[in-house]
Simulated scan of single mutants.
Amino acid sequence: MYKKALARSARVAAFCVLVTVGCVPAQARTLMFADSFPLSHTLSTDGTQRWMKRVETLTDGDIDFRHFPAEQLAKAGEILQKIEDGVIQAGYIGTGYVSDELPLNGALMLPGEVRDTVNASQAYWQLLKNDTPLRQEFLDNGVVPIYAVMLPPYQLVLKRGPVSELGDLRGLKLRSTGSLNLVVQAVGANPVSMAAPDAYLAIQRGTLDGTVLPVTSIAPYKVNEVTKSLSTNGRFGSFGITVAMDKKTYDGLSESQRKAVDQAGDETTAHLAQVIEDEVQTDLAEFRDQGMAVYELPESMREALEPKYQAAQQAWVERMSARGLDGQAVIDAYESALADVDAKR
């Protein structure tokens, strides 16, 4: 009788530990987190830092973080590998920096796909939360998407003055990355694959003639200090900002901890996307005050760019097809998700 009771007690104890239904307290843990953003960057203050603080609050301190910002631990394109290697448990993953590992996620970097940052971010996040090829790419790399936003449309940021026709771009060396390389190439410029934090020195030294960047990323990387002009109405593509967690770490959290991580992710996606959208006009005004030429591309140039944008998108679809991937289906799924978000706003 005693042995049976002891065995039954052991089974109950094991069950409690496995399902964490309150029989034992959730295990407190410190997670290592890395990103490439300066601490003053909106993507840090209203993104990664905000998310970490929110997780700590929602878990009553059971989860806290050791934060390595501004590429202290790894370059932007190396963070996914650091998670896979177990060096860190979570971090920022720029989809354009790991296009070999997350090829289909490059669809949203294509020109014209992002028009409104808030809606585009919500549409992308819905695709990453549900059972889609975009989410599966993250899972296949051993990570779980935690939150995501899309940046505003990329603009021309050049060492020279404003451009007024397509020929002005011919031969320029522009920093780019991922699917954006196809766009830069399509408009006649020469793409130079490089992470945003490295653009300043490359432009300053004359290695680059400029870059394509969203308005909100220019000042944090001090690119405005080494350039003279900025377009405002280009549609040169976008960039996916995602934060992901090691899947084993995520699965090892208690149910309440996972809910806290997920809730903080949903909140951060909504908050950060709106902050980015609101920040664009403020940044443009500051650049004008600094003497930067902030201008609209003329209508004739915009019309000339449209077929180039389409050519870049088609080239990307063909590149995906060569890898046995259905890129067009992903574009269609995003457009459908975006239409759903638009209808609800």
Rank of each mutant, 00 (worst) to 15 (best):
Y2V: 11
Y2Q: 04
A7C: 06
S9N: 00
A14T: 07
T20D: 12
P25F: 08
A26D: 15
A28V: 05
M32D: 04
F33H: 05
D35T: 02
T42S: 14
S44C: 07
T48A: 08
T48E: 01
Q49S: 06
K53Q: 11
R54G: 10
V55S: 09
T59G: 06
G61A: 04
D64Y: 03
D64Q: 13
D64C: 13
I79W: 08
E84T: 04
I88E: 11
Q89Y: 01
G91A: 09
G94R: 03
G96L: 04
Y97H: 04
V114N: 11
T117F: 03
T117I: 06
T117N: 12
N119D: 11
N119K: 15
S121V: 10
S121N: 10
Q122S: 08
A123F: 06
D131K: 12
G142L: 13
M150Y: 08
P152F: 03
P153I: 12
L158M: 14
R160C: 05
R160L: 00
V163C: 01
G167T: 12
D168C: 03
G171V: 05
T177Y: 05
T177D: 02
T177K: 09
N181L: 06
L182C: 02
L182E: 06
S193I: 02
P197S: 04
P197C: 01
D198Q: 15
A199K: 03
A202D: 06
G206T: 00
V215D: 01
T216C: 05
S217Y: 09
A219H: 01
A219K: 14
N224E: 14
G237P: 06
I241H: 13
D246H: 07
D246K: 10
K247H: 01
K248Q: 07
T249D: 03
T249A: 14
S254T: 15
E255S: 12
K259R: 13
V261G: 09
Q263V: 11
A264E: 03
A264G: 09
A264Y: 08
T269A: 01
T269Y: 02
H271S: 11
D283A: 14
A285I: 06
F287E: 02
F287M: 12
F287Q: 02
R288N: 10
Q290S: 13
A293V: 07
Y295L: 05
P307V: 09
K308R: 15
Q310I: 00
Q313W: 03
Q314C: 02
A315M: 10
W316C: 04
M320S: 01
A322F: 10
D326I: 14
Q328W: 12
D332W: 04
L338V: 00
D340H: 10
D340M: 11
A343H: 09
